[in-house]
Each structure stands twice: as structure tokens, then as C-alpha cells.
């Protein structure tokens, strides 16, 4: 699998950047000519990962969110969202559907959405160090054989 293109984005953990980051990733992933459904899936998963970094990683305090998107010749897109926030002690528990540490109306389905919309979701985290979520999706929509 060869890397075709890559971009990096660093942003403040502000909730307005949820919309900004998914729009940036969608524009970048569009270079692989995905279907509208694939693009919508990618945007939704990125939105969940970035929202987690802001809401959970930094608990709505200020901090940097690092996003890297890589396009490969598979063709596939790989997105890494990293924060230097509080981290997760038990990743398996955090990934369980409906698990949430938040009061109010967070549904606890962020990881469930990422898992169902992407082909692969990897979470690496250490308490006090931060969390890195890696999302991967094969783009099969339109062929580039011709």
C-alpha cells in the first residue's frame, strides 16, 4: 500500500472546529473520488473522533487537536486524530456502545458510529497522556482502472 498524499491539521479544541475538520477531511478525501455515501461516512466518523477529543480529551478546556489524513493507492483513506488530553484508562469500556462519562445528552455512541462507518478503528490511549484514534476506510466507489 503506497502513500499517495498526506495532510496535517492542528486546531484548538473548540466545538466550531468539529465542522471545520470534517469539511477539510472530506475535501481532501474527495481526491480519491469516493461515492457520496463513502464521503458522508468519513465525515461522520471524523466528526465523532474530533468531538471526543474536545469533549472528553480536553473536557471542553483549551488544547491542541492534531489531525493527519493519508490517502493510499489501495485506494483508502486513513485519518488519525490525536489529543494531549486526559486519556482513557479502559479503552475497551470506552468503546462499548452506550458507555458515556458525560451527564446530559451525549448518547455514548461515538465509537459505535466510527466502527460501523469505517473499516477499521484503532484507539491508543494512556491516562494523563492523551488519546489517538486512527480511522481507516477503503474507497471502492469508483474504479480508477481506466
Amino acid at each position: 500500500m503506497k502513500k499517495l498524499n498526506e495532510m496535517k491539521l492542528t486546531m484548538e479544541s473548540r466545538s466550531v472546529n468539529e465542522g471545520f475538520s470534517r469539511a477539510v477531511v472530506a475535501a481532501f478525501a474527495a481526491l480519491l473520488d469516493p461515492t457520496l455515501e463513502e464521503l458522508s461516512d468519513i465525515k461522520t466518523a471524523v466528526s465523532e473522533a474530533v468531538t471526543n477529543a474536545i469533549v472528553h480529551g480536553y473536557r471542553e478546556q483549551s488544547g491542541p487537536v492534531f489531525l493527519t489524513a493519508t490517502l493510499t493507492d489501495k485506494p483508502s483513506v486513513r485519518i488519525r486524530v490525536r489529543d494531549r488530553g486526559v486519556g482513557i484508562a479502559d479503552v475497551a469500556e470506552a468503546r462499548r456502545p452506550l458507555f458515556t462519562t458525560m451527564q446530559g445528552e451525549r448518547a455514548g455512541l461515538g465509537f459505535a458510529v466510527m466502527e460501523s462507518f469505517m473499516d477499521r478503528v484503532q484507539v491508543r490511549s494512556a491516562p494523563g497522556k492523551g488519546t489517538t484514534v486512527t480511522l481507516e476506510k477503503t474507497i471502492g466507489g469508483k474504479r480508477h482502472d481506466g
Binding site: 451525549r106 448518547a107 455512541l109 459505535a112
Partner: peptide
Amino acid sequence: SFMDSSGIGLVMG
């Protein structure tokens, strides 16, 4: 034009 899992909480609530 776009909705993520925040829409779930909005409907559930």
C-alpha cells in the same frame, strides 16, 4: 446536510 451521533441525543432527549 450533516448529522453525527449528537443528533441521537437530540432526538432521545
